[in-house]
């Protein structure tokens, strides 16, 4: 991946974080932690890898993006708004009676592929999509993002077995391994154990990456396309609340409201990261 592309996607991830922050605003609870851990993965999928068509969200040939961890939908809204699936003004109206954007993924929103949020169901839905696409000889690919806390849902493992039984290879699972669930660290609340070993034992092709490293995310998705006869899962090691110093590696901002002060601090932190990227880009541009 070219250095310019990497910087561009890093900036995109920051823009997505700005959008998430805008949606959460001041005094309204919102899932900051698990949305921002996904910013780079979402940026690479929507702005680099996936074939999507915002003008025709139901285009049968589109690649699919599903959040099994539906509570992180703010990061998907952030991307869909950037791509023009719906007007940006909707972001401010998220989770209101007047607005389009629900608290969890809902199919009235253009670009949302399934109703998720009751955890543990996304991989099954994605497997059904993969099987249907295969019946139709449609080359579209299906991506489904799960949480590491979510892996305690038994249905995910039913689906993990099914996808291998049916040898689907147009399916990519991504585990957002931010190591924190709603009420605390995964190892303390309910330890989901050796996650890569479990997926290997279930017969998946397993790739482990730094989930904030753009080239690694892209390379893992490239590799997944070459694997035939079985599905691939990308275990993405991430930081919950990434990009916001006060929210990193804590359960406190899994779903919380921001004070005026914290909101301003968050904006300032993102601006600083953006200007660092811009100056780095200029330096590279001069070489």
């Amino acid at each position: 991946m070219q250095a310019e592309k990497v910087v561009e996607l890093k900036k995109t991830a920051l823009r997505l974080r700005f959008n998430v922050l805008e949606m959460i605003g001041v005094g309204k609870a919102g899932h900051l932690g698990g949305s921002s851990s996904l910013a780079e993965i979402t940026a690479v999928l929507y702005f680099h890898k996936m074939r999507v068509n915002p003008k025709n969200p139901k285009d049968p040939n589109r690649d699919r993006f599903l959040l099994s961890k539906g509570h992180a939908v703010l990061i998907q809204y952030a991307a869909l708004a950037e791509l023009g699936y719906f007007p940006r003004e909707e972001l401010k109206k998220v989770k209101t009676l007047e607005g389009l954007l629900q608290g969890h993924p809902d199919m009235k929103t253009p670009g949302i592929e399934a109703v998720t949020g009751s955890l543990g169901q996304g991989l099954s839905i994605a497997t059904g999509m993969s099987l249907a696409l295969r019946l139709d000889k449609n080359p579209a690919r299906v991506h489904v993002i799960m949480g590491d806390g979510e892996l305690s849902e038994g249905q995910l493992w039913e689906a993990a077995m099914a996808a291998v039984n049916f040898k689907v290879d147009n399916l990519v699972g991504i585990v957002d391994r931010n190591r924190i669930q709603a009420t605390g660290p995964v190892v303390e609340v309910f330890n989901t154990g050796d996650i890569p070993a479990k997926w290997k034992a279930f017969g998946w092709n397993v790739i482990e990456i730094d989930g904030h490293d753009i080239p690694q995310i892209s390379a893992a998705l490239d590799e997944a396309e070459t694997i035939k006869g079985r599905p691939t899962v990308i275990i993405a090691n991430t930081v919950k609340g990434k990009g916001f110093s006060f929210a990193e590696n804590t359960a406190a901002y899994h779903n919380a409201a921001l004070t005026e002060e914290l909101y301003k601090q968050a904006q300032e932190e993102l601006r600083k990261q953006m200007s660092e990227l811009e100056s780095a880009g200029k330096v590279r541009g001069n070489i």
Binding site: E113, A114, G120, Q121, S124, I125, A126, T127, G128, M129, S130, L131, A132, G154, Q155, E158, A159, A162
Partner: peptide, 12 residues
């Protein structure tokens, strides 16, 4: 459970 949600994927 997986059967019902897989059917969801088919229907979608």
């Amino acid at each position: 459970q997986n059967m019902a949600s897989t059917a969801t994927g088919f229907a979608l």
